[in-house]
């Protein structure tokens, strides 16, 4: 296994764009005065002629991206998730989603781990917003290696894609020698039949730690990493519902409209089993250091392990 890389997924994203741009001259990148923060600055530095700062004007940026895409470019439009998906939601819906244009939308500083900036910047709704747009692919990679692969897949995919990026530097857990990314396919990280945990993004590694710790307590927990929230891997979820009878979803997002609801949509129609959603319960965040907040919201290994114990006890 290669060394653990400790890196924010926004940084991996910026690096991936540079890699991909070498072979693909259609890629252009737009930002809205947050290039240094979203890390599109890495691309800007390498390809200044293919980078356009739109200023603090996210709605405008999305429609400029739409226009570029209609002329054959593959535009990547980045800002904080709050502003790229929130401020510009309707522009994305009507000018990118409806015409099915090939725009890649990036939302960085997603989730509670945005930290000190507080509620106005902690986007807990982006996945919900982007899931409602027909034809939108929604990606939420969990570590450096997955982000590199997901960015490549997003660019290669023809059509609108939303990709969620984190601010916080996190440890990688995937092994680049064996890791395979397939759009729309979940990955089983740990086998088990007592219960299934389905996680996405930054909290996947936390769930992994929880599942490994519980193994010592004699619990066999299946862990599924869902990097593609839409279209979701129905097969892997139905199989888990059938074989383990109970599901826990974990996401750094409002429990309304995110991964948990996407999983519920699948199981309620095919194989109803109890689903417990771990996430942010229909509230705003607040300021604080990222890890302290993750702890408070029960999104670290300790909090997740506790929920797994409770749910297994109910079986």
């Amino acid at each position: 296994m290669a060394d653990v890389v400790t890196k924010a997924t926004r940084e991996s994203f910026g690096e991936a764009l540079c890699e991909l741009a070498k072979e693909n001259d259609k890629i252009v990148v737009l930002d809205a005065d947050l290039a240094g923060a979203t890390k599109t600055s890495i691309f800007q530095k390498a390809y200044p002629d293919r980078f356009f700062d739109c200023g603090i004007a996210e709605g405008n940026m999305m429609c400029i991206a739409a226009g570029l895409a209609s002329c054959g470019k593959t535009p990547v439009a980045a800002s904080f998730a709050m502003f790229s998906t929130g401020r510009a939601y309707e522009q994305i819906r009507n000018s990118i989603g409806y015409p099915g244009l090939n725009v890649k939308i990036a939302g960085s500083h997603a989730g509670i781990s945005t930290g000190e900036d507080g509620a106005t910047h902690q986007c807990l709704e982006d996945v919900a917003l982007m899931r409602t747009i027909p034809g939108m692919t929604v990606l939420c990679p969990a570590d450096h290696y997955e982000m590199m692969a997901a960015t490549k897949a997003a660019i290669e995919h023809e059509g609108p894609v939303y990709i969620r990026l984190g601010r916080l530097a996190i440890d990688s857990f995937n092994d680049p020698d064996t890791y395979e990314f397939e759009l729309g396919k979940g990955i089983t990280l740990h086998e088990g039949n007592d219960i299934t945990v389905v996680a996405t993004g930054l909290v996947v590694n936390e769930a992994r730690k929880a599942v490994e710790a519980l193994e010592a307590e004699g619990m066999n927990v299946r862990l599924i990493n869902i990097h593609t929230i839409k279209p979701i891997d129905r097969e892997i979820i139905i199989k888990a519902a059938q074989e383990t009878g109970r599901i826990i979803t974990v996401e750094e997002h409002n429990v309304i409209g995110g991964l948990g609801d996407a999983v519920c949509d699948v199981v309620t129609s095919e194989c109803p089993v109890p689903v417990r959603k771990v996430g942010v319960y229909d509230r705003y965040g607040y300021s604080g250091p990222a890890w302290e907040l993750l702890e408070k919201f029960g999104l670290t290994a300790t909090g997740i392990a506790q929920v797994i114990r409770e749910e297994i006890a109910k079986k």
């Binding site: 900036d117 507080g118 509620a119 106005t120 910047h121 607040y286 300021s287 250091p289 408070k296």
Partner: peptide, 9 residues
């Protein structure tokens, strides 16, 4: 800080 009256914004 966590729990502070003065938020980031």
């Amino acid at each position: 800080h966590v729990g502070a009256m003065l938020q980031g914004h």
